[in-house]
Write a protein that binds this DNA or RNA. Structure first.
Length: 383
DNA sequence: ATGTGC
């Protein structure tokens, strides 16, 4: 018996302990998705929650079919961890928080040369969404400064070049309007029907998809660079991992396609599993395994649906109560909806999600990071 | 999720 690997049906498995709460609707979506033509196996992660038709926090393995709708609109969305040159001990939160007034506008002319150079290096030929490059976007996207709070594997931390004294920067964003435009065009032409692998249409989608993945990577890079510049710091990228994408993958000596929707690859080196803005982020070493379709949770996972959070929180918490967290961190969020929808209370405890995976033999925890400053948006009251 | 809907 595999610990924390639940068998829902012959095709569908769920990585979670019996104690981990997962919404029934998400399990139903998982089972429904397993019925798609060409679907071989489906694996839910411990952060599984309902999405629009398809669940979030899951990996889907197909043979002969590609489903753009399973990847969704935010193609290439992921997490990027940078180490800044700033010392945690030197940070004055009041002063520091004021430095990020101009990080939401399109990148100004001073970035023009570097943008052109990096786009060329990453073979990005699409220019329609240049104004969004270097911007976080909405929803659950964020930029967060963090401090390494606990170290469980000193050697691994050093091997990654991480120094406990330095302030870290975590960026969660994706391909913005570019990924959206690719999905919208696909749905217009084919609705939710899968594409035949190897067909001209599939090849065209994959080509657009791959460019959106590279665009999303570059977006996170420029978000990190502009936040570092605003904070008067340097920095270097430690890791970058995509959790919304489809890739070719050989399983059981057969070729197929692994779709990940809010599922972090476990076959691409070290990754971070971020908690909500009031919770810890975990740096882990994935142990690649077929039982989770080479995937992991991409975060703590929603407990409450978007839109229902304000109603559940507003009687108990005033807006001002949500600008700081029990871990001592600050939140910059000028948008009322996002303030409530992304509140820590709306998410599960990240520790439980990570221990579900650790007990399943899918990860080893390297370090724990605590939030220092979470940036969402200045919203209407910018400045 | 969305150079975001009425």
């Amino acid at each position: 018996m595999d610990t924390n690997v639940q068998t829902i049906t012959e095709q569908v498995s769920l990585i979670a302990s019996e104690q981990t709460w997962i919404e029934g609707a998400a399990i139903q979506q998982l089972k429904k998705t397993a019925e798609l033509d060409g679907m071989v196996r489906v694996a839910g992660m411990p952060d599984l929650h309902p999405g629009r038709g398809y669940p979030i926090g899951a990996a889907f393995y197909t043979r002969d079919k590609i489903y753009p709708a399973l990847v969704g609109n935010d193609i290439g969305c992921g997490m990027s961890l940078w180490q800044s040159s700033l010392k945690v001990s030197k940070i004055n939160l009041d002063k520091f928080a004021k430095k990020f007034a101009r990080v939401e506008a399109p990148l100004d002319d001073s970035w023009c040369e570097l943008v052109a150079e990096r786009k060329k290096e990453k073979n990005i030929t699409n220019h329609s969404f240049d104004l969004s490059l270097g911007t976080i976007g909405g929803g659950n996207h964020f930029t967060e400064f963090q401090a390494i709070d606990q170290v469980y594997d000193t050697d691994a931390l050093s091997a990654l070049g991480l120094d406990k004294k330095q302030l870290q920067l975590l960026v969660h964003s994706g391909s913005r309007g570019l990924g959206q435009s690719i999905l919208v065009e696909h749905i217009r032409q084919f609705n939710h029907t899968g594409l035949n692998a190897g067909s001209e249409n599939a090849q065209r989608y994959l080509q657009q998809h791959d460019e959106a993945v590279r665009w999303a990577e570059l977006n996170r890079e420029f978000i990190a660079r502009r936040f570092l510049e605003a904070g008067k710091a340097d920095g270097q990228m430690i890791l970058d991992i995509n959790h919304n994408l489809v890739t070719a993958k050989t399983l059981d000596n057969q070729n197929g396609y692994l779709h990940r929707k809010g599922a972090t690859p476990s076959d691409a080196g070290y990754v971070v599993i971020p908690g909500s803005r009031g919770d810890y982020t975990y740096l882990v070493r994935p142990l690649p395994s077929d039982k989770s379709l080479y995937s992991l949770a991409h975060g703590a996972g929603r407990k409450w649906r978007r839109g229902e959070c304000q109603g559940r929180l507003s009687h108990k918490y005033k807006k001002d109560d949500l600008y700081q967290t029990p871990l001592g961190s600050r939140v910059i969020c000028g948008n009322k909806e996002l303030l409530y929808d992304e509140a820590p209370q709306a998410y599960k405890k990240c520790q439980s999600v990570v221990s579900d995976m650790a007990d399943a033999g899918l990860v080893e925890v390297i370090a724990r990071l605590r939030p220092v400053l979470t940036f969402k948006t200045h919203g209407d009251c910018a400045g």
